[in-house]
């Protein structure tokens, strides 16, 4: 019995694992919270695009020896501004603008790491995430963004709900929809920035979509989605991270697979009711 308990608690003897599981759990909950807006607004492609854009900044800051949060943050904001400018000129659609800018940023990041970086190690760490390099600053950053997100969403809950459900009428009713959308994009960018080092560029959009989709199958209430989805995100990140130690698999991949398994179970258990609820989420 003692051996079993000792075996179960083995990973927690390592500081790197404790740091990693704390960051992953908070990151999972944070992605679950913002994922509610991503899913209900049909913005999955923006989460995917932003993570690819930030990759370019992460690569550039690694090569130039600049602080990751500064380099990737500035790069992410610049990408967002360029996307907005291209889309506003209506030369091409917003989706095409996101596709061009973010994939170009991603490709530039790859090229920079190939040419100047410790290519293979750095690329794998950014693409698939790494728990080995998690530092105290990561825990502080992800916690700060999580607290900021909760405070803003609670304070502006009604405006967020109205602007998500019916932006046109919200605008007419006095809600500053453009401001709310900019705030949401800012929170989403910050979330990607602080979680990308653990979850990785390629899998972060899944963590934004899966918990919120599971929450949607479980409830017909926006308010309930806002607490069910973070719990699911946090639990799948904790379980995935923990299992990855024993399975010797990538932490981020195991986190996403844990979430996917929960999705399959909930999809099966909720039956037609759950499927009907997510049937409107065409982009999933």
């Amino acid at each position: 019995m003692i051996h079993v308990i000792a075996g179960i608690t083995t990973p927690f003897r390592y500081q790197f694992f404790n740091n990693g599981i704390i960051v992953a759990t908070i990151a999972g909950a944070l992605c679950g919270l913002l994922g509610v807006f991503v899913v209900l607004r049909g913005m999955s492609y923006i989460g995917h695009g932003l993570s690819h854009a930030v990759f370019g900044g992460a690569a550039a800051s690694a090569v130039m020896n600049i602080n990751y949060f500064v380099g990737a943050g500035v790069w992410g904001v610049a990408s967002g501004v360029i996307i907005g400018r291209i889309a506003r000129r209506r030369l091409i659609g917003a989706d095409a603008a996101i596709g061009v800018v973010t994939t170009a940023s991603f490709a530039l990041g790859l090229a920079l790491l190939n040419r100047y970086g410790q290519a293979k190690k750095s690329i794998e760490a950014v693409l698939f995430g790494s728990v080995l390099g998690v530092k105290t600053i990561d825990i502080v950053a992800v916690s700060a963004v999580a607290i900021l997100s909760v405070v803003i969403i609670v304070a502006l809950y009604r405006a967020f709900l109205f602007a998500t459900f019916d932006p046109e009428v919200a605008q007419v009713s006095g809600v500053r929809v453009a401001w709310i959308e900019a705030l949401l994009m800012g929170l989403l960018s910050l979330t990607i920035l602080v979680t990308m080092r653990v979850i990785g560029t390629l899998l972060i959009s899944a963590l934004l979509v899966i918990p919120a989709s599971i929450a949607r199958m479980l409830t017909n209430s926006f308010a309930r989605m806002l607490w069910i989805s973070p719990i699911i995100g946090g639990v799948s990140a904790f379980v995935g991270m923990y299992l990855s130690y024993f399975l010797d698999t990538s932490a981020s991949a195991t986190i996403i697979l844990s979430g996917t398994l929960m999705f399959i179970v909930v999809y099966a258990v909720t039956g037609i009711r759950g499927r009907t609820r997510i049937s409107g989420l065409h982009h999933i």
Binding site: L156, F162, F165, A170, S173, S221, F222, R277, G280
Partner: peptide, 22 residues
């Protein structure tokens, strides 16, 4: 119509100015 809101939540939406509790 698939958006997760109740009738009551839709009706009170027009009072969404900042400072109002969720």
């Amino acid at each position: 119509w698939n958006f997760p809101v109740t009738v009551l939540e839709v009706v009170v939406m027009t009072r969404s100015s900042t400072g109002r509790l969720p």
